[in-house]
Design a protein around this nucleic acid. Sequence first.
DNA 1: ATGATGAATTCACAAAATATTCACATAAAA
DNA 2: TTTTATGTGAATATTTTGTGAATTCATCAT
Lengths: 226, 226
Amino acid sequence: MKRLLIVDDEIRIREMIVKYAKYEGFDCEEASNGFEAVEKSLSKDYDCIIMDIMMPELDGFSACKEIRKKKNTPIIMLSALGEEYDKVHGFDLGIDDYVVKPFSPKELMMRINAILKRVQGSSIVHEQIQIKGLLIDFTGRIVTIDGQKVDLSPKEYELLSYLIKNRGIALTREKLLQNVWGYDFFGDDRTLDTHIKLLRRNLGEYGQYIVTLRGVGYRFEKEERD
Amino acid sequence: MKRLLIVDDEIRIREMIVKYAKYEGFDCEEASNGFEAVEKSLSKDYDCIIMDIMMPELDGFSACKEIRKKKNTPIIMLSALGEEYDKVHGFDLGIDDYVVKPFSPKELMMRINAILKRVQGSSIVHEQIQIKGLLIDFTGRIVTIDGQKVDLSPKEYELLSYLIKNRGIALTREKLLQNVWGYDFFGDDRTLDTHIKLLRRNLGEYGQYIVTLRGVGYRFEKEERD
DNA sequence: ATGATGAATTCACAAAATATTCACATAAAA
DNA sequence: TTTTATGTGAATATTTTGTGAATTCATCAT
C-alpha cells in the first residue's frame, strides 16, 4: 500500500485530502508544518509528499529543500493562486508537481497517481549529466571522475549541481548565493570564493571548468562539441 | 528534426520502432548490430540511440561502452525480460534509460521524449549577436571570433556590449561614459580612449568596426566593412 | 551532556587582474 | 601651420579573487 505524507497547517485541508486519499487506497500520515514534515519524511519512506507552501514555523520551500538534501521522495506542492508562481515554476527545488489552491480532490489524486506511476516506471533511471570524465548523478547524488567517486561536502555538491545544470551560462555571485544558499544569505564576501576553491580542488583537472567572471561571478564551461 | 539511431538485430523490431518514431516526427536511421551502431554513432550526431542488448557481433553493453568513450549521446537500452541484473549493471556504463521487452511503442516514445527534453533542459536560448565571425553571447558572457574565445576584461566586455547593442548608432563619449561607467564618472579624459584601445586590440581585425567620430565619440559599424 | 568530527564560515592577507592616470605621440580639422 | 582631439605605452592605483588558518556550527556517537 502506498504511503503519503500530507503537510498543511489547516486541519480542514488535511482532513479533506486524507479522506479522499484513503478512499483511493492510500495510507496517510499528517504534519502541520515544515519542521514536522522534514522530521517525518526523513525518518520514514513515503511514496509521495503533498505539502502546502505557506505554513508557520518552516514554509514548504524550505522544507522541500531540507528533505531534498537527504531524500528524493516525490513532492507535490500546494500553492495559493498567484503565490510565488515563479518559484514553483522555477523548479530549482526539485518539486515534482504542484497544484493550485483551491483544487478538486480528484485533480490532486490524479496528480499523485501520475507521479507514482512515473516514479515507479523509472525508479532506476538516474538523471545525470556527463562532461567528459566527470559524471554527476543527481538521482544518486554521486559525483565521479573517470569512475572514481569524488567526495564532496553537501554545499560543494549543491554548488556544483547548480553550476552544471546552468553550464554555459554566466551566473552572478548574487544568483549563486540565492540559489545555493538561500534567499536570505547575508554572509561574508569570501564564503562563495572559499567554496569555489574547495570545489575546484576536489574536481582536480575539471576544476578548470569553473571559470571566474571578474566582477560578475562564475560559469561552468560547456563541453565543446566533438 | 530530431535524429534517432535504432539498433536491433531483428528487422521486425526495428521496423516497428521506426514506424512509430516517424509518426512522432523523428528522423530514423538503423543499425543491426553493435559494430554498426558504434560506427554510425561516432560518424554522426544523433539525438538519441535506442539499442537492444542481445545482438550478434557486438552486444549492446559493449557498444555503449565504446560509444561513451567518444560521445555523450543519450542511449536507451532495450532489455529482454529477466535481464534485471544487467540493467543495474548497464547504468554504470552511462545508459540513460531502459525499456523492457516486450514494450509498447507508446511507452518507448514517451521515454525518448522525456530524455530529449531532459538533455535539452539546460540549453536555454542564449541571447546573442553575431557580426560575421564575431559572436557575442550575452547569456554566457562569452565573446568569440571564428569560434575562438576572446579574453576581455569586465570593462571591455561592458563597453563592447553597449557598442554592439547600439551598432550603427553614433554614441557620444558622454553617453558611453554614462552607460558603461555610470552617471557619476568624472575621471580623466583618456580613460575611454584607453579602453577603446584595449578593446580594439583584443578584437583583432574586428577592432576596425569601432570607428571614431571626431569631436563626438564612437560607433560600432553595422555590417559592411572593407 | 560531552567531546569528536567534519563542514561552513569568517578573517586577514596575498596575488591577480583590471582600471585609471599621465605625458607625450599622432592624426585630423581649421 | 596651428589647433584640437584621439591614440598609446608605461606607471600607478584600485578592485576583485584566491588562500590558508582560524573560528563557529551542526551532527553524531559516547
